[in-house]
């Protein structure tokens, strides 16, 4: 839609560029890329749930590179300990002191690979860092670098040897997305093209961390009208009162919807949130927060989020 009548006050050309760059590596997944970036701008963390090999790692790595961020990958296993993530103090014989060795969490982008393979104890160490943007090790609180963004991947929970994240911890993630298989054309291109690893080496940063922080701050200036708030509220109201879902959406979910929608509006280059923006982010924002009360079969095979959208008229 042509929005020529709005005067753009926020420069989003770099984001568009970043999306282009990432799309050349992750083929046919533009929507997921946009969602991931929206999630990042909205200062949320991203959970990617999918089978191995669909490009989760590549996506997070490319994202970090294109946005000019530091990147660390932690492979979660059942014997991973909190200290492996946060860091540990080691005795220094020369100075007769304990030196703190930072763990991989001290970075901008963390890929927490297969987070559901680790024990709940280890999971929670990371989740605290995600919520507080700081870690407390041996009684000392240390701030994490800014921006701090966790991309966790999770194998579908029916696979063997997993500790599925409880709902309360899923709630820490702003969005959950699925990458899914690429379509035919993308797949063919993927097969024909260069090795992704080599391509990744060539990726140039189109943004700096400072610019990203600036964008995050500009999120507040995206206009949210009363009419839109009415819409968000009717969505939440329906989730709570219709009797279709196990739990209605929490107020935190409402805030999450709104900030994700604002970020989506921002990367779509308009300065105000539309109902369409809400609808675009809704499946990823509430997919891991909303479940049907009974079996899905009679719900026209819709996801809960889609079902919710279809049932709430836009005021």
């Amino acid at each position: 839609m042509n929005m020529s009548e709005t005067v753009p006050t926020i420069d989003t050309s770099n984001i568009t560029k970043a999306i282009d760059v990432i799309s050349q590596i992750i083929l046919g997944k533009e929507n997921s890329i946009r969602l991931a970036i929206a999630c990042l701008i909205a200062r949320g963390h991203l959970l990617i749930e999918d089978t191995p090999g669909v490009g989760k790692t590549t996506l997070s790595h490319t994202l970090a590179k294109a946005l000019g961020l530091d990147y660390q990958r932690i492979q979660f296993t059942s014997d991973l300990l909190p200290a492996d993530i946060l860091g540990v103090s080691v005795y220094n014989r020369d100075t007769s002191k304990f030196d703190f060795h930072q763990g991989p969490v001290f970075t901008n982008v963390i890929l927490a690979d297969e987070i559901n393979r680790a024990t709940p104890r280890t999971q929670s160490a990371l989740l605290e860092a995600m919520a507080e943007y700081q870690v407390t090790v041996e009684g000392e609180t240390r701030d994490l670098p800014k921006p701090f963004f966790v991309i966790a991947t999770q194998n579908p929970s029916n696979q063997i040897g997993t500790f599925p994240l409880p709902e309360s911890q899923l709630d820490r993630f702003l969005m959950r997305i699925e990458l899914g298989y690429p379509d035919n054309i993308a797949e063919r291109e993927l097969l024909k093209g260069k090795n992704r690893k080599d391509l990744l080496e060539e990726v140039q940063a189109v943004l700096t961390a400072e610019e990203l922080i600036k964008l995050q701050k500009q999120l507040d200036s995206v206009h949210v009208s009363d009419a839109l708030l009415d819409y968000v509220q009717s969505l939440m109201e329906f989730s709570r009162s219709s009797g279709n879902y196990i739990h209605g959406l929490s107020p935190r979910a409402g805030i999450a919807i709104l900030s994700a929608a604002k970020a989506w509006a921002l990367i779509s280059s308009h300065q105000h949130v539309l109902p369409e923006d809400v609808q675009m982010v809704l499946p990823s924002v509430i997919g891991h927060r909303l479940n049907f009360l009974y079996d899905v079969t009679d719900k026209q095979a819709l996801q809960p989020a889609e079902h919710l959208i279809r049932n709430v008229p836009i005021p």
Binding site: M3, T6, H223, S225, D226, H272, V273
Partner: peptide, 15 residues
Amino acid sequence: IERITNLYVLIRYCS
């Protein structure tokens, strides 16, 4: 359609 929608969106969602 585009003109009307633009105006409506500006009023309703851009206040």
